[in-house]
């Protein structure tokens, strides 16, 4: 089992970690979730049927792990809001995470696109991260997300449109301010 772990680690670890990092936007959480991914992978490795590539299978598991994490976070947030009786005003509490150090040291444009990406829907973020940060093909992205190719294309199109709107609108504001 250790050999399998090391082989997978060599081939995919940094990609998987990066994917999780951009999904959850926090290094510590990504470190924790990557363990979860390996646990699932090692437990079910023998059942991997080879219908998809090993790489897309691993990314698919990583995405499920990230989604589980988001669900748990949402439940926690709901309990918190209920506890303080904030209930329906919960939307006033910002979901946006602080910018991780790795991004904070980048130039303004990178920081801006990162922030805009955060405001996209979960599905849009998944597609953008897989396509342009992880450099997966449309077909591979479809396998990871268990979607049709056309759904990937549509979501990508919408995500790009949203990013464009946010980026160039903000740029416009900045220019006006100057």
């Amino acid at each position: 089992m250790k050999d399998i772990f090391h082989e997978l680690y060599q081939k995919y670890h940094q990609d998987l970690f990066q994917f999780l990092f951009y999904m959850v936007k926090n290094r510590e959480v990504a470190e924790d979730l990557v363990q979860e991914v390996y646990i699932k992978v090692l437990k079910s490795y023998e059942n991997f049927e080879g219908k998809s590539s090993e790489k897309t299978w691993l990314f698919s598991i990583a995405r499920h792990v990230a989604i589980d994490y988001f669900r748990k976070q949402k439940r926690k947030k709901k309990r918190f809001l209920d506890y303080f009786d904030i209930g329906e005003k919960g939307y006033l509490i910002q979901d946006e995470q602080p910018i991780p150090e790795e991004i904070a040291v980048q130039n303004d444009e990178i920081k801006e696109i990162y922030k805009c990406l955060q405001r996209c829907s979960d599905d849009q973020q998944s597609v953008i991260i897989l396509r342009f940060i992880q450099s997966l093909s449309i077909q591979e992205t479809a396998e990871v997300l268990e979607w049709s190719v056309s759904k990937v294309k549509t979501t990508q199109h919408r995500a790009m449109k949203a990013l464009k709107a946010m980026m160039f609108k903000e740029e416009g504001i900045n220019r006006e301010a100057k």
């Binding site: 940094q14 990504a30 790795e102 696109i113 940060i133 464009k164």
Partner: peptide, 13 residues
């Protein structure tokens, strides 16, 4: 935008 996304920093564990 695509070019910016592709320039996002590589994150290493």
């Amino acid at each position: 935008i695509q070019s910016l996304l592709e320039k996002m920093p590589k994150i290493k564990d």
